[in-house]
Design a protein around this nucleic acid. Sequence first.
DNA 1: GTACGTTGCG
DNA 2: CGCAACGTAC
Lengths: 256, 256
Amino acid sequence: MKIATYNVNGVNGRLPVLLRWLKESQPDVVCLQELKCPQEKFPVKEINAAGYNAIWKGQKSWNGVAILAKNYEIQQVQNTLPGDEEDVQSRYIEAIIDQKVICCLYLPNGNPYPGPKFDYKLAWIKRFKRRTNQLIKMELPAILIGDFNIIPTELDVYKPEKWVDDALFRTEVRKAYMELEKKGWTDSIRKIFPKEQIFTFWDYLYHAYDRNAGIRLDHILLSPYLTPQLKNAGVDKYVRGWEKSSDHAPTWIELE
Amino acid sequence: MKIATYNVNGVNGRLPVLLRWLKESQPDVVCLQELKCPQEKFPVKEINAAGYNAIWKGQKSWNGVAILAKNYEIQQVQNTLPGDEEDVQSRYIEAIIDQKVICCLYLPNGNPYPGPKFDYKLAWIKRFKRRTNQLIKMELPAILIGDFNIIPTELDVYKPEKWVDDALFRTEVRKAYMELEKKGWTDSIRKIFPKEQIFTFWDYLYHAYDRNAGIRLDHILLSPYLTPQLKNAGVDKYVRGWEKSSDHAPTWIELE
DNA sequence: GTACGTTGCG
DNA sequence: CGCAACGTAC
């Protein structure tokens, strides 16, 4: 079973690219982030026509997350991250697919640091940890998947010294990521490629993709129960080179 | 010799449509209106690559006119309508091509009526008449061609009663058009099709093209000396049906 | 650099 | 409805 995450940066503007990638890559489950469209403008017709069921949580202009599945039923569990009724940003959707809990997230960017946006990021992470700790405690087969907006280690960025005060690389958020791993969550890409430099995002500016000036932001974390089933993982880096592509590349795992 | 006018409604956004039409229709001379680009952003490279020389007068965001010619030299005469130094709108360009004076115009729309925009339209028409009267007096072979933003008669609009107080159909501007004809200018389309209902514009709204709810705004008027050479005239209506088309259709004549 | 919302214009 | 400009977020 192939499970992927893709920050599309606008699902309607990106539809040709998304459909092409779906066709070529044939994932069973896909988590999308940054739909950038209100609930009623999600292109469900075209997604269905491509063979995928979908659930999604939209929002005008920003954020927005979705889960797609081919030949699997999608049982929605949550469409917000529990713990803050005031939070109106569409950044979390959770479903059960093929007996697994799929937690699709678009974690706040948090820039500029310091400031209220960074504070919001830390508060969001705190709420997220409560949810993930529950999943561990319940010993559920679960997957945390999406755009974490966290660069986990120095290996995951082309020039670490440039990023020390960036909200994506601040010690606070890297520590939070490490704590997830300590709790038992396994970083799939690092499990398969322990030492290799792998990126999932290249800025649109300054020809970052041509210079391979990338960072790793999109992660797929497996609960202890699922980790032994990890067969393979990868990034469809070539998609970033397509015309009119997102600034992220699709990232995926294969479970047996 | 085939001479055409086309209000492109944004020359850069419309470039694929324009180039396709140029290739299929092979006009010798083309007058464009509503370039909607500053002087330096006119796509001269692509136009040249399609085989056309060009002169143009651009303006940021609005208006803008151009004259293109294939296998003919373009001798620019004016790039503003004489008579008002204060007028900064790019609505007029005049050139000599193959011994003919080509006056390419984008006459002000003038809506809403009444108001300062309508007043500007009337003032512009007054200045335009001075120019055209000079051309008649000098007995030059001349062509007034472009988007006149004037519906000449009731035959030229799908539902005349809806347009009585529209600046495109007000008696003041229709009278001005009739006066041009009295001075000796010949409406090419009407010369070839005296009684037929012919449109050159269909609004983007309310599926106007599908309902053929059109109007005739784009005109090609010939000076007395040239009128006997008129062989044919027409509107490339099908172009309005293309994907991402302008709200106007190309309009053309053939001179022998 | 790219996408989306808004505004101005027609 | 659709183009172009501008502001904003990333």
